[in-house]
């Protein structure tokens, strides 16, 4: 019988053991379950918080951005416009914030036992998906209400892209998150910088304003942000208003694939000995 385990100082750069991750799939589902179960344990309202957060945020935006600042919503009912942006952006931001601290928050368990570290950010992105799904129901309820009332919303075939859009949000946040978390094991400055970058990032993404309010030149700059086209496509597909182009969406998709590949390679390299520097 040959040696089945070999532990050596360095691995090759692209030696990512995907088979191993598959072998730990039960752990992955346990982590997802744990995240969901424990999030609202010992709270009175429990899962209702899933709805309360986006609902209150929407009301807030309606007062501040829609009311006081008077920013256009592309002719859409304000609750619908803000809610669609919030549900998507919140998912992206939540995943990003959580995955970007993978190493620092899990150092206790990582220091004791080995399992493929990538399982943790993967399960974070997945468990947040459940939360997003529930919030999406809220969006759907409001959406149906406006359909019945007869507001100017018209879904079209591009709504079928929604699963892809969600996948892209997941991929982008995972990619950014694991790169950041790999970089912050040694130099913590980035953690501080990053939490505030995420806050600002929202204003560089068409969450509270439609892309159509910008000049075509500015739109092009905005589209460099890979999240922009995802949000715009979402609004376009569900409500028929917004800016959509295959080129922009294709750019975001390619961006995600490259980012994810870099992220996994970097993460894989760092995970092997981060315990010494964290």
């Amino acid at each position: 019988m040959g040696y089945t385990t070999v532990i050596k100082p360095k691995n090759k750069l692209f030696e990512v053991d995907l088979k191993e991750i598959w072998r730990y799939r039960d752990l992955f589902s346990m982590f997802v379950k744990r995240d969901i179960i424990t999030q609202y344990k010992q709270t009175i309202l429990g899962p209702a918080w899933f709805f309360i957060q986006p609902a209150l945020t929407t009301i807030m935006y309606m007062v501040v951005f829609g009311g006081i600042a008077g920013i256009s919503t592309d002719g859409l009912p304000q609750p619908l416009f803000y809610l669609s942006g919030i549900v998507c952006w919140q998912y992206f931001a939540d995943c990003l914030n959580k995955t970007s601290s993978t190493f620092t928050t899990n150092q206790g368990i990582f220091g004791k036992v080995y399992f493929p570290r990538l399982i943790v950010p993967l399960s974070t992105v997945t468990s947040n998906l459940v939360r997003m799904g529930i919030q999406f129901l809220l969006f759907l309820a409001v959406y149906i209400y406006y359909l019945i009332v007869g507001a100017s919303v018209a879904p079209n075939a591009y709504a079928l892209l929604i699963p892809v859009l969600i996948l892209m949000l997941a991929g982008l946040s995972l990619g950014f998150g694991i790169i950041i978390s790999s970089m912050t094991t040694k130099y913590r400055d980035l953690t501080i910088l990053f939490t505030f970058i995420v806050q600002l990032w929202m204003y560089a993404t068409p969450v509270i304003y439609p892309l159509s309010t910008m000049s075509p030149k500015r739109q092009w700059i905005m589209a460099l942000n890979p999240v922009t086209s995802i949000l715009e496509t979402f609004k376009y597909g569900t409500m028929g208003v917004g800016t959509f182009s295959w080129g922009m969406l294709g750019y975001s998709f390619a961006f995600m694939v490259v980012l994810l590949a870099i992220g996994i390679v970097v993460f894989n390299k760092v995970q092997r000995s981060f315990m010494d520097t964290v």
Partner: peptide, 29 residues
């Protein structure tokens, strides 16, 4: 959990370690 600076370890079969029991217990579960 960490890598050696130099050298190699070769082993036959699955290695399980009990560096501290109850690793990953979640108090709420």
């Amino acid at each position: 959990v960490t890598t050696p600076t130099t050298g190699t370890i070769k082993a036959r079969g699955r290695i399980a370690s009990l560096l501290e029991v109850g690793t990953g217990f979640h108090p709420e579960m």
